[in-house]
């Protein structure tokens, strides 16, 4: 049927992952960091599904579902923290959060 090599899927996933990674470390806005994290998680899910498909195993999709769960929980907590941050500081700059330094 299809002739997509697994390598291409992996490279696609890596590109997505790296894009998300750039976002996480380059952006100072915590909201964008959270979105970049979603991109990274998505890339990992893609790699799992590609591998599962190549070896005809359902484990890849199981992992994808678990990652989905993780992403949901993470977003719930992350957004709640952002809301609290916005309430208390009116600012989402991650570099301003350095009270634990000393």
């Amino acid at each position: 049927m299809s002739q997509i090599p697994l390598n291409h899927v992996f490279i696609f996933a890596i590109i997505l992952f790296v894009i998300g990674f750039i976002g996480v470390i380059a952006r100072r806005n915590t909201l964008f960091m959270l979105m970049s994290l979603e991109v990274m998680l998505n890339a990992v899910g893609l790699a799992f599904i590609g591998a599962g498909s190549a070896w005809v195993e359902a484990d890849g999709q199981v992992m994808f579902i678990l990652i989905l769960t993780l992403a949901a929980a993470e977003v719930a907590v992350g957004l709640a923290l952002l809301i609290r941050l916005q309430q208390q500081r009116q600012c989402l700059d991650i570099d301003a959060l350095n009270e634990l330094r000393e």
């Binding site: 990674f21 996480v24 470390i25 380059a26 100072r28 991650i94 570099d95 959060l97 350095n98 009270e99 634990l100 330094r101």
Partner: peptide
């Protein structure tokens, strides 16, 4: 090394 900058930690991790 304890800069309290999350992005710095992430960069070091990478």
């Amino acid at each position: 090394t304890q800069t309290a900058s999350l992005r710095w930690y992430l960069a070091m991790l990478a």
